[in-house]
Design a protein around this nucleic acid. Structure first.
Lengths: 236, 236
DNA sequence: AAAACAAATTGATATATGTCATTGTTATAA
DNA sequence: TTATAACAATGACATATATCAATTTGTTTT
């Protein structure tokens, strides 16, 4: 699969919630300085260790962000979708990327240069604060996930991840998760072995919590799933 | 143990690396607006769920920051020491605290009001950027820990935590860790059961990696520990 | 100093989950 | 249409780690 990259002209970042606090003028130059591209599933946006020149806004599609751990096993840190930004963490720290990002659903991304970001932070304190809050939100998520992964069983975590995916990517009319992951990707998110995911999904199906057909996961007993997930209070 | 709080007059935050980018004038009003206190081991600085009015700078002592998970089991998110700041995450997100912070070594803290923080972020873009980089650094750590906890054995993680503690709190002349934790606290950091920590520490001792006397942990084979920790590349 | 409590240790045991191996299934390409 | 590979599903098995229970040691508190 080739990285079919085709520049796109008419995309604007003006509607992005992340840029809500920008003035018209700032938006104008932002839109001028960004570079958009269309990427096919499987394309890699940037690799762990690479030098970043900017961050990316996701206009459409889905991206998985992961770290490479022991034996090259990937740990998925998050899924990003329309309206999200990626690569900003390492960029702001001025380090080379500590994650890899890969398209899992055909996407359109806009690249915003580091300099533009710095400029906005410097000139627009509302933007700086908004940025700060985005990082803080992600840090909160991370801390919660550390607690989960340290204290919960794989079964509980799988249920929880399914609920999280439901909240992030919604269900279609048929109560089916609008994100399609391989069993391995699910395993790399939950932090377990692929076989365990397969077995647990089957169990969930037997228990009438979900229905499976291929990669489609249909939630048929939400309350039951929530119960299995054993939520403390956080994540809905 | 009582929360013996005694206001302290002559403490200044001017030397804090975190405030490096402040002007003399900003420092002056910061020092005026802060409130310092001396807290004994065991004191709780703030509790999960409480409303925060500011963040805290640690002038001396050690603090553990933890989340309460399943069955009230605590998951230690980080240890903070001189020069570190705590409580800023929830504060910036304007949420109630999602962690609890407790003194584990007699400490002096300075409370800086939210308004002061906001003001600095608004008026001093270098400070805003510095703040941003602090949050980013913590997010990086968190992501790395997620990968570890998801992929490594308890044995590996324990070795790694010992190394981390060594880097954060240094060793005394005798190669002994300058932070004293109960086995339970170690367990709650590593994300395992207390008994497992006890057994693994004994094994490490048998393997001549460390020496134990009470809560004192002496590192006698650093290279060996590093090997056990099975570091990918990140944390030293 | 005794009493009361918290922390550390050790052993026995159960089990959730990882690992390995095999086969079936589906997608992709040639 | 076959060939090739990626993915999914199952079974058998090993084991790291949790859990439970009992004992010892060390710290506070009165």
């Amino acid at each position: 699969m080739k990285n079919l990259i085709e520049p796109l002209d008419d995309i604007t970042l003006s509607g992005f919630r992340f840029f809500k606090s920008l003035s018209d003028e700032e938006l104008k130059s932002l839109n001028y300085e960004k570079t958009c591209s269309s990427l096919k599933k499987g394309s890699i946006i940037y690799k762990e260790g690479s030098r970043l020149t900017g961050f990316y806004c996701i206009v459409r599609g889905i991206v998985k962000v992961y770290k490479t751990g022991i034996d090259g096993k990937e740990q998925i840190i998050r899924f990003a979708r329309k309206g999200d930004i990626i690569a900003y963490r390492s960029l702001l720290s001025q380090e080379s990327a500590c994650t890899t990002s890969k398209i899992i659903e055909d996407a359109i991304l806009c690249h915003v240069p580091y300099k533009t970001l710095l400029n906005l932070i410097e000139k627009n304190s509302s933007f700086a604060l908004a940025m700060l809050r985005i990082v803080c939100a992600e840090l909160k998520e991370a801390n919660e996930y550390i607690t989960d992964i340290a204290q919960k069983t794989v079964r509980e975590r799988l249920a929880e991840i399914l609920l999280l995916l439901k909240d992030s990517f919604d269900l279609d009319a048929d109560q089916t998760l609008q994100i399609s992951l391989t069993r391995e990707e699910l395993a790399n998110t939950v932090g377990t072995a692929t076989e365990s995911i397969i077995r647990l999904l089957s169990e969930f199906k037997q228990d009438k919590l979900i229905d499976l057909q291929g990669r489609k996961i249909k939630i048929i007993n939400l309350a039951g799933l929530i119960k299995v997930a054993n939520l403390t209070n956080n994540r809905s």
